[in-house]
């Protein structure tokens, strides 16, 4: 992954983005796949929304809003990105569901998002953790494992 600013340009032939929930004795373990870091970030956001709202997810509504997250490395970046979304969900009762990642480097994500308001804060997820967090090349794309405290 280069330090240069990266707008998602998926490689042909690599697996499409997706996520799944892996069993964990007490917390929520998500496995996220994407062709680029931008897709991984967006897919991780969708997994979080799924935990908060249940699936199928509702349609995103309202205006776009922008977030900017900076961290020391790619793992910290993904953890910080999710923690920013968790914070927005609980403090503003707003769950992002549609992600347009404008910039994704090893230390920076800038994205615009649309979502839904929920009058009661969806505080099911407390935080994203560093424990067991990985981001590796797999199947021509990227695969991340992230553990959420629920």
């Amino acid at each position: 992954m280069s330090e240069a600013s990266e707008r998602p340009t998926p490689t042909t032939g690599s697996a499409p983005p997706g996520h799944e929930f892996v069993d964990h004795p007490s917390e929520a373990h998500i496995l996220v796949r994407g062709r680029t870091l931008a897709e991984v970030a967006a897919e991780a956001g969708l997994a979080l929304a799924g935990l908060a709202l249940g699936e199928p997810l509702p349609r995103a509504m309202g205006p776009w809003r922008e977030v900017d997250v900076r961290s020391r490395d790619r793992i910290a970046l993904l953890v910080d990105w999710l923690n920013e979304l968790i914070y927005l969900g609980e403090s503003e009762r707003w769950i992002p569901l549609e992600f347009d990642v404008l910039e994704a480097t090893t230390t920076h994500i800038r994205a615009r998002m649309r979502g839904v308001e929920r009058p009661e804060s969806p505080s099911l997820v407390k935080a994203a953790t560093y424990h067991g967090a990985t981001l590796e090349n797999a199947g021509g794309g990227l695969e991340a494992h992230l553990l959420l405290d629920v």
Binding site: R72, V79, S91
Partner: peptide, 17 residues
């Protein structure tokens, strides 16, 4: 509640740095 969750989030990040 969320206050404590955020305190932990903030300081895991800081101490990791």
């Amino acid at each position: 509640r969320g206050l404590g969750h955020q305190v932990c989030t903030d300081y895991v990040r800081l101490l990791d740095e």
